[in-house]
């Protein structure tokens, strides 16, 4: 068996492009899914039954179906629902945001719920308004709970972006798989793909561990 690793150098530009798309997808998804997650978390606490029920149904559905299916679903359903053609990148982004928003909303909900009611009451007793007590007392404490989970979600998301490759988003996985089928340098290309993901993902996993050690609540 002979290897021809030169294919990697020849494809460096394309792989770099793919990696950028992967990173862009991760960042954009998180940027959108954090505020949306807060909104959904608040909707779930809504006093209007239909609103909270709908929000709950959405979150539970997204948490209990494969992401790759959501990607396919978005690919076919979005254009029909909206009547507009979506680019693969935008479709992938929508699917990832749909999924991630659900997870983030759970993160925020459990973070806020983890703060004992007595903390809010202590704030109210000092003469704060409900809003002030939430902003100044609950949020700063909840943040410590939320940050480690968000960090874990981030790495999961980074890995999950590879799933949008099935609808030909030019991300790292899709780019590498394309080059593989054109060049027939299977081992070289697939190994390079794994190595690049590892190079990007390994430090992230380590940073997550560090965040957990620093902020993690031990019970």
């Amino acid at each position: 068996m002979t290897f021809d690793w030169s294919i990697i150098w020849q494809s460096m530009g394309a792989l770099w492009q793919g990696a950028l798309v992967t990173i862009a997808l991760t960042v954009l998804t998180m940027v959108l899914a954090v505020p949306l997650g807060i909104v959904v978390a608040l909707l779930r606490e809504s006093r209007l039954k239909p609103v909270s029920a709908l929000a709950t149904a959405y979150v539970e559905l997204m948490r209990n179906v494969p992401i790759i299916l959501v990607v396919y679903w978005a690919f076919y359903v979005l254009p029909i629902l909206t009547g507009v053609g979506f680019s693969p990148f935008l479709t992938g982004l929508v699917a990832l945001v749909l999924n991630n928003t659900a997870y983030n909303s759970e993160t925020f909900r459990s973070g806020i719920r983890s703060i004992r009611k007595g903390q809010t009451e202590a704030g109210l007793a000092l003469g704060m308004s409900e809003g002030e007590a939430f902003r100044k007392i609950v949020l700063p404490q909840a943040w410590r709970r939320v940050l480690p989970i968000l960090a874990t979600t981030w790495v999961t998301l980074f890995k999950d972006t590879s799933l949008v490759s099935v609808i030909a988003v030019g991300d790292l996985a899709h780019t590498a798989l394309q080059i593989r089928s054109q060049s027939f340098r299977v081992i070289e290309m697939l190994t390079a793909m794994a190595a690049i993901y590892w190079l990007l993902g390994y430090p992230q996993a380590k940073i997550v561990d560090w965040i957990h050690r620093k902020y993690g609540v031990t019970e």
């Binding site: 590879s162 996985a173 081992i187 697939l190 590892w198």
Partner: peptide, 23 residues
């Protein structure tokens, strides 16, 4: 463990299916 936490499952899957037989 840390490597598996860093690499997408899709990447492991295609490597095992396409590259492992050749290797």
């Amino acid at each position: 463990i840390d490597s598996m936490r860093a690499i997408p499952v899709l990447v492991v899957l295609v490597w095992v299916y396409f590259a492992l037989p050749i290797a």
